[in-house]
Design a binder for these strands. Structure first.
Length: 441
RNA sequence: GUGGCUGUAGCUCAGUUGGUUAGAGCGUCCGGUUGUGGUCCGGAAGGUCGCGGGUUCAACCCCCGUCAGCCACCCCA
């Protein structure tokens, strides 16, 4: 085997396969999952946008934040003609870029947008963590109303409900407005400074660059220092506090469950006020299924003259599939043809192409073996294809003008005039459109 | 980026204290007389034992490096 997928990437094949630990669902499962997402988005009146995989490096650096891990060490940078591009590590900054570039505010009102697509981060691969991974997410741009936050969270929950995934926990917090942050940062620094020697090297750096990040440390020793540390909630300005309260009231009214977590912060710089994360205990270290929040500061960070309030979330397909597997959900298998054509001899094979074409034009999915294999081999292939019927054509059938139609399930066959094949075969179980549904168990 | 574990046919795995033609099951292909599958029987193809060095008369087995996967950390979806 000469070439292989590069580290942390994978192929999607007709059937599921695994990379050694992570099960990669087949293409039909991906299509189905994307369809479930699209269905939910439609019900929330979110509309799709598709942005390039390649974006200007500066957009990401300024949008996501230069001190973040993503920008400082996980970007795939592409250089060409002195321009620096990156394979997008997330899609929020690109969508905001598109919103500003195309003046989507001129469509009127807040824009309810969603996306589905690949992202790239040069992290060390693990189960549920790839270098090319796939996300869907929403961006509700142009509204500072708490209702926008509530809609976003409600949408997130609705998607996972549609997938039948239970046992998740939605953590919610407010990190306040940019103006609230300095006082809190100072308070944090004051709190940690005396214990700097007990902090890890990275935390000590963060004390300088981004003290909020120390809050979500998992280091037990550092967690101990969190006792008595200043609480973000106490530093919220009136506007942010009121906003947060109204978001919670709306979610309570909707019956959307969440838990408040004053230690929840986000790794990306653009967040303001509302932040949340959906996690599952079933996923091990990759517990985060989805995360998001409000990012009122992003637009200006990427060059807008006016502030543009917005809120959204991003969710990972790879982790969704792990959660679906944990839930015992059966994913759709590759589609099967309706008919498998078995041709004996050159004349029959020549006629077979015409018959296949006619059946296909009538809407049937038709497969057949190329290259004149033995009847036995062709029948075996027909069986394996999953087709409901095999249509056998040989010299006898051509002479009689009638093919043998074999019901592969019942093992019965009868002659059918070639001209009537399309009608007869279409009369069967032709509910192929919607495809199989997953079974929850 | 750090640490640990793993790496033999398409898949799941065997492979004796290093010993000379590396095996099995499943799968694939062909066949079991002239045109019929899912069972059965027979046969075949398929492996530079992840890759590269080293030790040795001799290495899939030992040593070093490297790549990849997995797990944890970090971080994140």
């Amino acid at each position: 085997m000469a070439f292989q997928t590069i580290r942390g990437t994978f192929d999607v094949l007709p059937d599921a396969h695994d990379t050694g630990g992570s099960e990669i669902p087949g293409a039909a499962a991906w299509r189905w999952a994307e369809g479930v997402v699209r269905g939910t988005m439609a019900r929330f009146a979110f509309q799709e946008v598709r942005t390039p995989v390649l974006e200007p490096l500066d957009l990401v650096a300024r949008g996501v934040g230069a001190t973040t891990d993503i920008v400082s060490k996980e970007m795939f940078v592409v250089e060409r003609s002195k321009e620096a591009y990156v394979l997008r590590p997330e899609v929020t900054a690109p969508v905001m870029r598109a919103y500003l570039q195309h003046h989507l505010d001129q469509r009127g009102g807040a824009q309810r947008l969603f996306y589905i697509g690949p992202c790239f981060r040069a992290e060390r691969p693990q189960k549920g963590r790839f270098r090319q991974f796939h996300q869907w997410g929403t961006e509700l741009i142009g509204s500072d109303d708490p209702g926008a936050d509530a809609e976003t969270v409600a949408n997130l929950r609705a998607v996972y409900d549609a997938f039948g995934i239970t046992g998740t926990r939605l953590r919610l917090n407010s990190i306040g407005d940019a103006a609230d942050r300095p006082a809190f940062r100072d308070a944090l620094r004051e709190h940690f400074a005396p214990h700097a020697d007990q902090l890890s090297e990275t935390s000590r750096q963060r004390l300088d660059t981004n003290p909020l990040r120390i809050l979500d440390t998992k280091d037990p020793a550092e967690r101990a220092l969190l006792d008595g540390a200043p609480v973000l909630t106490d530093f919220l300005g009136d506007a942010a506090r009121d906003h947060h309260d109204r978001v919670k009231t709306l979610l309570d009214g909707l019956g959307v469950p969440y838990v408040e977590d004053p230690l929840l912060v986000r790794g990306l710089d653009y967040y303001t006020r509302t932040v949340f994360e959906l996690e599952s205990d079933a996923l091990g270290a990759q517990g985060a299924l989805a995360a998001g929040g409000r990012y009122d500061g992003l637009a200006q960070a990427v060059g807008s003259k006016r502030p543009v309030p917005a809120v959204g979330y991003a969710a990972g397909f790879e982790r969704l599939f792990i959660a679906l597997a944990e839930a015992g959900t059966t994913l759709p298998a590759a589609p099967t043809p309706d008919v498998f054509l078995v041709c004996l001899g050159d004349a029959a094979e020549a006629a077979g192409f015409g018959i296949a074409q006619a059946l296909r034009q009538s809407g049937l999915a038709v497969d057949f073996a190329l290259g004149g294999r033995s009847v036995k081999a062709q029948m075996k292939a027909a069986d394996r294809s999953g087709a409901a019927h095999a249509v056998v054509i040989g010299d006898d059938e051509l002479a009689a003008g009638a093919a043998q139609v074999r019901d592969l399930g019942a093992s019965e066959q009868r002659p059918v005039p070639i001209a009537e094949l399309a009608v007869v075969l279409s009369a069967g179980p032709a509910a192929r459109e919607s495809g199989p549904s997953p079974v929850h168990g």
